[in-house]
């Protein structure tokens, strides 16, 4: 039986057919048009309000320029030099470093403790997990107001508790060191639930037979934690430290509400705000700070992305 070969699914090989070529070209340009219509607005917005500012900040950072002034002097790298050599600039770095380090370590350690308890899978775990995570989604302004009341040395809840214990309440709002401690505490309170939930996901993905094997070998809960759980949590710990560094370095709401003048709490973000929109109006210096902040955050994120790329198939 003679069978005619089935026609190929693809169109016949291209011949010199001007008509088809035109159709093809118009299909291509229609595809380009579709892409531009769908993705264009977003790309334009990102260019206008993220990339363009990034570039113009670099230019502004070379100026001695008061916000709103019509003229400005080009001062080269003087703003950067000031940031790294002046005593106020040094203070910004000191406060940023302490705040970042303390909040990252604080929320990661407390978050781990909470996660280990949640990992026992007791009834009510879901409720507890939700409750602990909740502060993370709340307005930093609202949270700042609540804790302002709690830390008030005269009528705050903390003062009442301290007095009941026979202590007196220090003035958290005036002493720069105590003010920094105060905002760190509040920030850790707001963020530890995030760390706990991320740890919990890591803990629950640890194969149960590994823990059972350790148990059979006579490892108690502490030994299991340090010899099995923590090593396997390595990628989680790394991920968390990066995301926590990123968010801590961008913390602003709580600082501004609880310590409006930045007395003792002027992290780099706060200083960017104070320098350009606070009393100083030093737009050029503020732009230099913004450029440095971007570079720091970019490096941290790039390290993370590299790592994630390599470790994504870790388990």
């Amino acid at each position: 039986m003679a069978v005619t070969p089935v026609a190929p699914a693809r169109p016949a090989p291209r011949v010199a057919d001007p008509d088809r070529r035109r159709r093809r070209r118009s299909a291509t340009s229609r595809r380009h048009l579709t892409f531009v219509l769908l993705a264009g607005p977003n790309i334009a917005l990102i260019l206008a309000f993220i990339y363009f500012p990034l570039a113009s900040n670099v230019y502004y950072s070379l100026l001695d320029w008061r916000l709103g002034a019509r003229t400005a002097d080009v001062v080269g790298l003087a703003n950067y030099v000031e940031l790294f050599t002046s005593s106020r600039g040094f203070d910004v770095w000191r406060v940023t470093l302490i705040f970042t380090l303390a909040t990252v370590v604080g929320s990661m350690v407390l978050g781990l403790l909470v996660a280990l308890v949640l990992d026992r899978n007791l009834p009510g775990k879901t409720f507890a997990r939700t409750a602990v995570f909740a502060p993370y989604v709340l307005s930093g302004v609202g949270v700042g107001l609540i804790w302002l009341f709690i830390f008030d040395p005269r009528i705050g809840l903390l003062g009442h508790v301290l007095r009941a214990l026979g202590q007196s309440s220090p003035n958290w709002f005036i002493d720069p060191t105590l003010a920094l401690v105060m905002v760190i505490v509040v920030y850790v309170w707001k963020n530890l639930g995030y760390c706990a939930v991320v740890y919990l996901a890591g803990l629950q993905s640890i194969p149960k037979d590994l823990l059972e094997a350790a148990q059979l070998d006579g490892a108690g809960p502490v030994r299991q934690l340090f010899s099995v759980k923590l090593p396997l949590l390595g990628p989680t710990v790394f991920f968390l430290s990066v995301t926590c560094i990123l968010s801590s370095m961008q913390a602003f709401d709580i600082l501004r509400i609880m310590t409006p003048t930045g007395n003792g709490t002027n992290t780099i973000i706060f200083e960017i705000f104070l320098q350009s929109f606070g009393a100083y109006q030093r737009a050029g210096y503020s732009a230099a700070l913004a450029v440095v902040l971007f570079v720091v955050l970019f490096v941290v994120t790039a390290v993370q992305l590299r790592y994630v790329e390599r470790k994504v198939h870790y388990r």
């Binding site: 602003f252 350009s276 902040l293 971007f294």
Partner: peptide, 14 residues
């Protein structure tokens, strides 16, 4: 990766 704060001043001007 660009923190919105880093774009704040130029956006304010725009």
């Amino acid at each position: 990766m660009v923190p919105p704060e880093a774009a704040m001043l130029p956006n304010y001007l725009t």
